[in-house]
């Protein structure tokens, strides 16, 4: 049986999203398809299985040569892909085969977090330029539509800043440990 749930996670809440998916799997609902843009998660209901879900942020698109090479490597290790969204992939592994993490040492986890931070950093200037342009246009035209659009871009820009700050604090925590451990 298929069950559809709708839930909103921001891009920096990938760890919360993982926990939620793992909790659902514990209850017998296993993610089989996802569309984060529509906040749509599709689950298969089965009591006889349990999976560990992980999100990974790739260097390239999942359909690129490098992306496919990595996903093939994972699949040889029993890790299957259930969905993707831009450079995010949703992965799972049968829980009976033991613990499943994608990154087992600090430097590999730090790199992972830095990849995610780069996404926000790369998109931020675009949003700020848009916002400034829209505000300028509004001041000239006093158009209500432009006013609305400026508001929207300010909200999105705020999201990006939040993303950068959240990732910064995660990276800083790991960096501190990496002075002592690997």
């Amino acid at each position: 049986m298929r069950v559809i749930k709708r839930k909103l996670f921001f891009a920096w809440q990938f760890e919360e999203e993982e926990s939620w998916l793992n909790e659902m799997s514990k209850q017998g609902l296993h993610l089989v398809a996802v569309n984060p843009l529509l906040l749509k998660y599709e689950f298969e209901q089965r009591k006889d299985k349990e999976y560990t879900y992980r999100l990974e942020f790739l260097d390239d698109l999942p359909s690129s040569r490098k992306g496919l090479d990595y996903l093939q490597f994972l699949s040889d290790l029993g890790v299957e892909q259930v969905g993707s969204f831009m450079r995010w992939v949703y992965l799972r592994k049968n829980k009976s085969s033991g613990q499943f993490h994608l990154h087992s040492d600090l430097s590999s986890r730090i790199k992972y977090f830095k990849r995610i931070r780069m996404l926000f950093i790369a998109l931020s200037p675009l949003m700020f330029i848009n916002t400034i342009n829209l505000i300028n246009t509004y001041l000239r035209t006093k158009s209500g539509v432009i006013f609305g659009l400026s508001g929207l871009t300010i909200i999105v820009a705020t999201f990006f800043v939040t993303g950068i700050l959240t990732m910064n604090s995660k990276i800083k925590n790991l960096d501190k440990n990496s002075n002592i451990w690997e």
């Binding site: 040889d76 033991g98 994608l102 087992s104 992972y112």
Partner: peptide, 23 residues
């Protein structure tokens, strides 16, 4: 291959080091 390495390291370290696929 990858799977062989992971298994070998698990054996060598008595389950202490379990290399994660991404790493």
């Amino acid at each position: 291959h990858g799977y062989g390495i992971i298994q070998n390291v698990i054996d060598l370290t008595n389950n202490r080091v379990n290399l994660a696929p991404g790493t």
